[in-house]
Design a protein around this nucleic acid. Structure first.
Lengths: 122, 122
DNA sequence: GTTCCATATCATTCTCCGCTGATGTGTTTC
DNA sequence: GAAACACATCAGCGGAGAATGATATGGAAC
């Protein structure tokens, strides 16, 4: 019965892990950063230039992505170079793109996670 | 130039769409529901029983999942039966599980201050 | 040393969204 | 009809986290 409890814990943490992973990808800014990095490694100010995000903001997201294991970093003099940690990440992003084209046409219609539009309901 | 603006919008909405999609998956409760549905279609009170979530909570998440195109529903008398909208969704969840195992072990193996990276000659 | 540049961190604000309890809608059975 | 059941929706609270401006750290050039 402790076995059952252990299994339940294992399931819970596995679900938690996936949720965290998806949460890492569930942000336009982080997706933009990952897209930029898909073309090749970049240092921070290059990412800032390509994403039109502020430097602290980029730095914050990079820390998040790094802690989630999605990107790795390496210091290069004054710079810090970031890259996608695994080509499988890029593959996943690509696959999801295809999946969205094929299946989830309704995602666009989903009102739940709209970025600021003037809606006076809810 | 409107073409450029249109393209930029297209890119923005593509990123937004992916972010929304991942956001739909970035919640333990919704993942638990999807896991339950991966085994086969279920009516709401069955999902409630298997996930230990409250009924309004489940109902709320199901609406979200439904609007995002991740699940479909069908009324069956007093019941409403939900199912995964596409096997590709289940495939994605499974693939991510495998990816997380790979990334997690990779992170554990290569983390924190390894100065032996011989690259960078420019 | 000092100065400048690249990046990280901090403190704050503010919006979003998940959970809950109560209530509403729809369906079946009597 | 009324009652019981299955599910959906609503209002409100509370926590999480994203963006911002200011500041701190760390390295390079002088």
């Amino acid at each position: 019965m402790e076995q059952i409890a252990a299994d339940r814990n294992a399931v819970a943490t596995a679900t938690e892990r996936r949720a965290k992973f998806f949460r890492g990808l569930a942000d336009q800014s982080r997706l933009a950063i990952l897209d930029a990095l898909c073309a090749g490694p970049l240092v921070v100010h290059e990412i800032v230039g390509r994403t039109a995000l502020t430097q602290p903001n980029v730095s914050n997201h990079l820390r998040c992505l790094s802690e989630c294991g999605l990107v790795t970093s390496m210091r290069d003099g004054r710079f810090v170079r970031y890259r996608i940690s695994s080509p499988r990440i890029a593959d996943l992003l690509h696959d999801v793109e295809a999946l969205l084209d094929a299946v989830a046409t309704g995602v666009e219609a989903c009102r739940n996670y709209e970025p600021d539009e003037d809606e006076f309901h809810r």
